[in-house]
Nucleic acid binder design. Sequence first.
DNA 1: GCCGTTTTCGGCCCGACTGTTTTCAGTCG
Length: 604
Amino acid sequence: MTETDRTNSQLARLFEQMAAALDLLGKNAFRVNASARVARVIRDQADQIANVIARAREEDTKPLAVLKAIDGIGKGSAEKIIEYVDTGTIAEHTELMEQVPAGLFDVLEIPGLGPKTVRLMWEQLSITCVADLKGKLDSEELAALPRMGKKTIDNIRQAITFAEESAGRTPLGIARPIALALVEHLKSVSGVTRAEYAGSLRRGCETIGDIDILVACTDPEAVREAFCTQSRAVQVLARGETKCSIRIRFEHATMQADLRIVPQEAFGAALMYFTGSKDHNVRLREVAIGNGMRLNEYGLFTTTDERPQDAGIKPTAAQTEQDVFAALGLEWIPPEMREDRGEVKACAEGMGVPHLITRGDIKAELHAHTDASDGKQSLEELVASAQKRGYHTLAVTDHSVSSVIANGLDPKRLRRHIKRVRALNEKTEGITILAGSEVDIHPDGRLDYDDDLLAELDVVVASPHVSLRQDRAAATRRLLAAVTHPRVHILGHPTGRIINGRAGLDPDLNELFAAAAEHGTALEINSSWKRLDLRDTHVRAAVQDFGCLIAIDTDAHSDGHFENIEYGILTARRAWLEPESCINTWAAGKLHDWLAGKRESSRR
DNA sequence: GCCGTTTTCGGCCCGACTGTTTTCAGTCG
């Protein structure tokens, strides 16, 4: 779990625990779902809920009303949120935790075990944690439980082992190559007419639970066989007519992969079904129901009967996603937006889908390293990498002096480096090579070079690298100092988080975004799949609520890193980013003017 | 518990697969 929004994270965690506890206690499933949804909505908020409440009070509006205005949060949850912000606890959560042993939540996490089974094991066998369960795997009393046969117990045993050695969700940059290899493998099977990955991977989520692959084909058995018996498959979890699940090992990662065999004529409907987040799909089906229709993975049907596909009814739309969206009365919504973050509502109300940024819009790389600091490429090789991608501008931004481990440049070396860059720029056609630096932001907000030296640079990317566990107030002061500094163009990887690694800084984003907008400093989406910093929800808030400029850069240390731009673009699209707000899309003249303009204004 | 250009009460998405079952419950996505 990432912890950048510590308060929101903690609050979301409480709602998740309440949902799990209610589930284990056999409470109404809709109540369980409502609580889980509140948790998700809280996680999606860029702004701190505590700040939202504080601001509402300052402005003399009712916090309750402000919270209730958020989709998915009703009166009950709003009251609990306020209770948490004011007291640090939620009474109902405390009561539930007294009723349900803490270890049961871990048992519930084991794939294949759901609330019903866990509750039964708890009530009948006093199993309250994974260790209890492991101790009873061979016991007769476990086997005596209803619906608990040998296979089920074997599956639990394997699932525990898998859970113990798996690191949870897999970063996008690890999962995507695996999925691409799977797709290629399946495309090579005879009779396969289409193969594509769907799910959270197609939505570009920063981490992936499992890989979903859709295949249309003329010989389903050949596809099932090819999928389940491939050399990388370490276990077959399910093998049905249309759905197979395996565990797959690829280099160091182990993941679950699901194959769905779908009819060619319903590929679009299936792709939609298996791409949308659960909540997005619910919204779409509600739209269908509202129109007296039924939507499932076989298509959109002009009936509300159950399983119309089995009754021989032909769908009105199914072939392509565009067909299905159109028949629902909606514009096609890009996969990255299908998260139930207001996209269906916006589309239904005729606001239209934003013109999202694409990889082809990127014309400049403004954050890249050479072997002068810790990059693998020489200056000339770096330039060739940028030229190969058709960029009109490359900023060479090696590390500053304090990044000792990264061989940061002291002022003397930097001045020589600037000269080399300028000289190369003189004799290079077709691309502008700018002299820049990725300058450390010290914990107190000072920059790593003095202002005179900064003034000699064309591009200054200011980034935090150390002291990434500062408290919020210190982190906010530090980053504000950087974005308001007249010689800083871009705030690099603003929080310093590492996905699945460290939470990073947790500044007051409202203050940071307001200052960045006011001073015309761009905020970076660092495209490294280990970072993706800023993250999608933050970028959306920065641009939509504050009008900030965004830079999408790869922070390349080698030629291959340039390809990470895919991940930055996916993140930007998840933030509903349009090209105009991204400085890397601007024409050369506009970009160069902007870079120079910041310097001009700083000399006034 | 949430929500409402059909509803402030009564709904709340839909289907596949497994394992244990004589017809289906539980889990998953």
